[in-house]
Design a protein around this nucleic acid. Structure first.
Length: 836
RNA sequence: GGGCGGAUGGCGGAAUUGGUAGACGCGCAUGCCUUAGGAGCAUGUGGGGAAACUCAUAGAGGUUCAAGUCCUCUUCCGCCCACCA
């Protein structure tokens, strides 16, 4: 029977049907069994799956299937991250309902995933746009609100005047609206935040527990959280006739405090108003501040832009020496970080140096560069930011600057000139979106309560959840939050006073909320009583292996960690970290560039399946590169995979003879022993490659090596022991290959396995170490490190034996040319080096 | 500017963690076979050389009996962060 495209499709459909009907991948919690939770980052349902998905899910599927064969109770679920802008954009374009469009995409996507033969427990499928899912987003939000971890404050958003709407950062192209090209401005809106900073310390600390995460992901999170130790220094400022004000400046370089020659405030700094009111330059300064405020963030934060600033005419007193130094306002100081005010030390900070040069501000060297001890301010071409000894710093002169950081901080503490402090780069999480296709924020504002002096921002009572999205709202992409256009949605009864014209919050939640806890929901996806079943979660969680793209290294993974910590504080889970192991798969490239729709260089997985079948596609992707590396797509690779599967198919179809007895080792000849050694070597290598670092590419290659050996192994007519050995070899090939190409292997296992059960229920083969032993080994002989000969020696040869054999060899003697052997280095069973 | 990875044949990639560089596969070459197929099989395939040999893992040094692997410097590429005080 030929292994044709037609045959492949028939086989693949057959087994997909059987898996479904027999519920092969259904995974009920079973405390008697060891569990393993494999999860891939669920997709946004855009309709078609792309090669990135195929790679991600194929990697996960191999892991899941191997664990099944190794006897674990494996949870391997799939769902859809279904809220988000593309659905709204599609709705605008096609005049359809985002829900309809999304569910249509999900249907298409599910069909494609099934065609790939992934081992999902489809009964657990979920979509985040389902009210039975997002009601729990609302529930979690309310729990956070109760504990003061969800709060509202005004903050700037990107705003398009022409569309009358906010824009996500990704929708701002060259500082203009992506749709109408109107320049984007910053506008202050009241918005909801989640207080992730409450968990800054544990989020940083617990990174240490993530030993099985890629170190670069840990490093990125560390940077993002950004803990920095420093000192808040209290400068003072006094306007004639008024009492003095404090200007708190944050610095990590307290050692340079005696070199501070001016102070800079962010334009938004609260003290600015007082500083400039009634001064001669007030108008000019205000104009400058307005100009900076009008600039979009992306423009202002461009590193190479020239730093601009203006002198306030005021002076601040440096607490360590009483010196009066000018106060400036400049765009390079950010209100969001530190205290929004800095002390400038132009000699030892490059940004300050450039600014001081530009505006002719004074400089003073306070750290001596050991390479240039006589340097004068006038010689400086750049700030010296390295290590050195303090000068011009009074009692601290002569001290190493690293020690001085500590000494000066302590001295300032004692004299109340400053305080040791910690600053975090991590900001609270802005979750309000002026969008339709997201989770409504379950808050009601009551005008009546407000007028009557009561609390008027009120949480929706838990038993009134979910707050459902209204249907039939026209999405236009213009004019603010779409939910304001549904009066049915907007007006609600006040849960406090019963007033029936209270208004709902009309913003929706950021979609990252949805993905911050879905891994918990998978443990009990149909539970309608709780956010998730505590017992089920206790059994399945944490996720043993999480797999996804590096692009989620920061936000999604950080938010998930944050939610997990919060849910632990609620007493719902008993672990700190949701993902034990993380694998970040590399991108799929075509001709050296990332495959993407916008580049137009995509390869459609469906077309490959159509021609070669899912198994060939899976094998090609796994064989082409290690999972973490980039993968250069090649059609030839699929062809090669297809050829290899053909060989396996023909081997099982043509050379396997059913009904032979198990062979016994005493009648093995050398060929038999060699085959058994190859078989066990393959078992060992494939098992190790899969479990230690997921090296699927080399696992496949060792299977190919074994196949080559099996092909060469001759079975005489009549078979006997040799036929039995061959049969065993065929079974091993099928079992080892099964996680990679499941359809083909199920089909072959039905023939060679002799059972009714799916191959995922068959035991993963065990390696017989004794069969790996060889009677003789090859030893390489080098002279002065150069390869000069290879010898087959008995496996138990001693160093002395090898030395004798080597030195007796005619060719070796020729190279020695009678010179005395200075040293003889021997690495057992591998290499000998003769040093002359 | 900071952080983290990389650089090995015509190509994708191996290399037991310091011990035969180029496994496995693609491609290519020659041959065989045939129910001319998306074939299949056999042999070969880093460079130079007729060979003995020799050169070769981005480049330059170093450590070592032995370096793709460890150390120092340089070049190039990728990713992430970035006026973070």
């Amino acid at each position: 029977m030929p292994y044709t495209t037609h045959e492949i499709h028939k086989i693949e459909e057959k087994w997909q049907k059987i898996w479904q009907e027999k519920q092969v991948f259904k995974a009920p919690a079973d405390p008697a069994r060891k569990k393993y939770y494999v999860l891939e980052m669920f997709p946004y349902p855009s309709g078609k799956i792309h090669m990135g998905h195929v790679r991600n899910y194929t990697i996960a599927d191999v892991i899941a299937r191997v664990k099944m064969m190794q006897g674990y109770n494996v949870l391997h679920p799939m769902g859809y991250d279904a809220f988000g802008q593309p659905a709204e954009n599609a709705a605008i374009k096609n005049k359809t309902d985002p829900a309809k469009w999304t569910y249509g995409c999900i249907d298409q996507m599910r069909a494609e995933l099934k065609r790939m033969g992934f081992s999902y427990d489809w009964d657990r499928e979920l979509a985040t746009c389902d009210p039975q899912y997002y009601r729990w987003n609302q529930w979690i939000f309310l729990k956070m609100y109760e504990r003061g971890l969800a709060y509202k404050k005004a903050s700037p958003v990107n705003w398009c005047e022409s569309c009358q709407t906010t824009l996500a950062n990704e929708e701002v192209v060259n500082d203009a609206c992506w749709r109408c090209k109107t320049p984007v401005v910053q506008k202050n809106l009241e918005q909801w935040y989640l207080k992730i900073t409450h968990y800054a310390e544990p989020l940083l600390e617990d990174l240490k527990k993530l030993a099985n995460w890629p170190s670069r992901v840990v490093a990125m999170q560390e940077n993002w959280i950004g803990k920095s130790h420093g000192v808040n220094i209290f400068f003072t400022w006094k306007k004639t006739g008024e009492r003095s004000e404090r200007i708190t400046v944050f610095t990590t370089r307290a050692d340079t405090i005696f070199g501070a020659t001016y102070v800079v405030l962010a334009p938004e700094h609260p003290l600015v108003e007082k500083l400039i009111a009634g001064t001669p330059d007030e108008k000019k300064i205000r104009a400058f501040i307005e100009k900076v405020a009008g600039e979009s963030k992306s423009l202002r934060l461009t590193g190479d832009k020239k730093k601009e600033g203006i002198f306030t005419g005021q002076y601040a007193v440096n607490p360590v020496n009483g010196e009066e130094i000018p106060i400036w306002i400049a765009d390079y100081v950010l209100m969001e970080y530190g205290t929004g005010a800095i002390m400038a030390v132009p000699t030892h900070d490059q940004r300050d140096f450039l600014f001081a040069k530009e505006h002719k501000l004074p400089m003073r060297i306070v750290i001596q560069d050991p390479a240039n001890p006589a340097a004068k301010v006038s010689d400086l071409k750049a700030a010296y930011e390295g290590q050195g000894t303090l000068v011009n710093s009074k009692q601290f002169d002569g001290i190493d600057n690293e020690a001085a950081k500590k000494n000066i901080a302590e001295w300032m503490m004692q004299n109340k000139m400053g305080e040791v402090t910690v600053h975090w780069r991590l900001r609270d999480w802005l979750i309000s979106r002026q969008r339709y296709w997201g989770t409504p924020i379950p808050i009601i504002y009551c005008k009546k309560c407000r007028e009557e002096g009561r609390k008027w921002t009120l949480p929706v009572p838990e038993d009134k959840l979910p707050v459902e999205l209204p249907k039939k709202i026209e999405i236009t992409g213009r004019g603010g939050s779409p939910l304001t256009r549904s009066s049915e949605f907007l007006y609600a009864k006040c849960p406090q006073c019963g007033y029936d014209h209270a208004t709902r919050e009309f913003d929706t939640m950021a979609t990252f909320i949805d993905s911050s806890w879905y891994f918990l929901r998978f443990c009990s996806p149909r539970n309608d009583k709780d956010v998730f079943d505590k017992k089920e979660a206790a059994y399945w969680m944490p996720v043993d292996q999480y797999i996804g793209g590096i692009e989620h290294a920061i936000l999604h993974l950080l938010y998930s960690r944050f939610f997990t910590k919060f849910l632990k504080d609620l007493g719902l889970v008993n672990f700190d970290e949701p993902f034990v192991r993380l694998l970040t798969q590399g991108m799929v490239l075509k001709d050296g560039e990332v495959m993407s729709k916008s580049r137009g260089n995509t390869v459609d997985p469906d077309a490959i399946i159509e021609r070669y079948g899912a198994d060939s596609l899976r094998l090609a992707i796994l064989f082409a590169a290690p999972p973490e590396d980039q993968l250069e797509w090649s059609d030839a690779g699929v062809d090669a995979a297809w050829k290899f599967l053909n060989r396996v198919w023909h081997l099982a179809q043509q050379r396997f003879v059913p009904g032979t007895r198990e062979p016994s080792a005493e009648n093995f000849d050398q060929q038999d022993k060699d085959l058994e050694r190859e078989r066990n070597a393959a078992i060992k290598k494939v098992t190790e490659d899969i479990s230690q670092g997921y090296k699927f590419n080399t696992a496949v290659s060792s299977l190919m090596i074994f196949m080559n050996a099996v092909d060469k192994y001759a079975v005489p007519a009549g078979g006997g022991v040799k036929q039995a050995l061959l049969n065993r070899a065929v079974r091993t090939v099928v079992l080892l290959l099964a996680p990679f190409t499941p359809h083909l292997c199920e089909e072959l296992w039905e023939k060679v396995g002799g059972g009714e059960q799916s191959v995922v229920r068959a035991a993963w083969p065990a390696c017989d170490e004794a069969a790996l032993k060889q009677d003789s080994v090859q030893v390489v002989v080098q002279i002065n490190g150069k390869l000069r000969g290879k010898f087959q020696v008995a496996a138990d040869s001693s160093e002395e034996d090898v030395r004798k054999i080597a030195l007796a060899d005619a060719k070796i003697r020729e190279f020695l040319a009678g010179k005395p052997v200075k040293r003889f280095v021997y690495v057992a069973g591998k290499v000998a080096n003769i040093v002359l």
